[in-house]
Design a protein around this nucleic acid. Structure first.
Lengths: 233, 233
DNA sequence: GAAGCTAAAAAGTCAGACTTATTCATCACA
DNA sequence: TGTGATGAATAAGTCTGACTTTTTAGCTTC
């Protein structure tokens, strides 16, 4: 989690961002900087900085003589980690979770395949450590500890792929896994089959078997998708 | 392409963004707002807005008493369309092009599979139109016209997938295809085999055959990757 | 009814004064 | 000698008020 409230403009963003992404101000809505500044009790300069940030996320568009217009959802920078967090915290969390899980199902298998050929010895070792950690915490209602290893594991796969675009999805995957553990599914211990798949995946990467690594990851992500289907068919 | 120079702070960004992403200010470099404001001949308020935007892209970090620090590349929001454009315009364009093409190879096949089951009749029709347009412009050095249809085709696949995360990669794919046509490979007419694959893909989606759609798209993206290997082995 | 003019509205810009957090160097004390 | 407290310097952060610029909407005129 990033620092919540780095300055006044950050506070404003923490209030406005979630409101906009939640659809509280529907696309086309017009806000006025001065009015917002009054509402949040900050100076116009601070408000302007906040608007600039929202603008860079393509959440709003600022035009002279008209005001700050909320843009349609299709134009939002939905890969911005901040936007993702705001949306995950809001009402369309289930929808968002599904979108991201589908993205994972596309990216992670390919990343795992690349990791099998590119991973360094240290990365392989770390991967195995994570898998063992998952095994060790997979029983006895230690979901919180399990999550830590799970996140580290998937993050390492993405980093070890050697592709920076994949690597930067680590935070997204972390959010999805955390969200799953905290609010939605998984009230009991994780599926033993899934744990085994992770151990085997670490093996495949270590042995430099991209085909097997990709196939195993596909099984993992299919499982993640099925979890969602069970929850919201 | 977005509007270049929407206000003074935009001009500053158009100068600073490319400089930072090009590594002109290496990670750890410290800039001072006042100095930058002087250099670009703008007021401090304008400069502060620009810094806030760079900060929201995780390109820099602003801290009291120390200044504006350039963050390490690994922390940049590399999915921000603006950042992508800056980097594609800079020195590590080849590296960036490769990263993005690998991303395409992961995402597009899955998107095509989803499109085969989710695409509306109108989307299927548009897809076919695009494919025919590609055929029509595939000979006689009409690369510019070909590109338009190619971009529209891939964009439609991503949109028709029904997943918003995929849909938002349309701009990225457009940048990659445009970059390829304009500067790097493709001095002659496009590969006829690739054109055929697109026609068949439109077919597969129309017929609702996800497996075939995914397989065909994999062939297309493998081709795109090979093009890069030929250029920079 | 179309073209052009005018006035208002809201963002954009600037300058300057002031506040606050953070760092670094100095100094006293153990 | 090392450690902790003190204080000054520094750069970002904030606020205010005046002014500029662009764009729209309404009105006038032909």
């Amino acid at each position: 989690m990033t620092t919540p409230g780095r300055g006044l403009h950050g506070r404003v963003l923490d209030a406005l961002g979630p409101a906009i992404t939640a659809g509280e101000y529907p696309p086309g809505s017009v806000l006025r900087t001065d009015e917002l500044a009054q509402r949040f009790d900050v100076s116009r300069s601070v408000m302007r900085e906040a608007v600039r940030v929202l603008e860079s996320m393509h959440l709003v568009e600022s035009r002279r003589r008209v005001g700050v217009t909320v843009r349609p959802r299709a134009e939002w920078n939905v890969y911005d980690p901040q936007v993702i967090r705001w949306r995950l915290a809001g009402a369309d969390r289930p929808h968002q979770l599904r979108s991201l899980t589908v993205l994972r199902s596309a990216v992670e298998p390919v990343a795992a395949g690349l990791a099998a050929t590119h991973a360094t010895a240290e990365q392989c070792a770390e991967l195995t450590r994570c898998a063992l950690g998952m095994v060790a915490t997979s029983r006895g209602h230690r979901l919180q500890d399990y999550l830590v290893h799970d996140v580290a594991f998937h993050r390492m796969i993405l980093v070890a792929s050697g592709n920076e675009m994949f690597a930067r999805l680590g935070d997204v995957v972390a959010e999805v896994l955390a969200g799953r553990t905290h609010h939605e599914v998984m009230f009991e211990d994780p599926d033993p089959a899934a744990v085994t798949l992770h151990v085997q995946l670490a093996e495949a990467v270590r042995e430099g078997d991209p085909v097997r690594a990709e196939r195993l990851t596909r099984e993992i992500t299919v499982g993640a998708l099925q979890e969602l289907d069970i929850l919201a068919p």
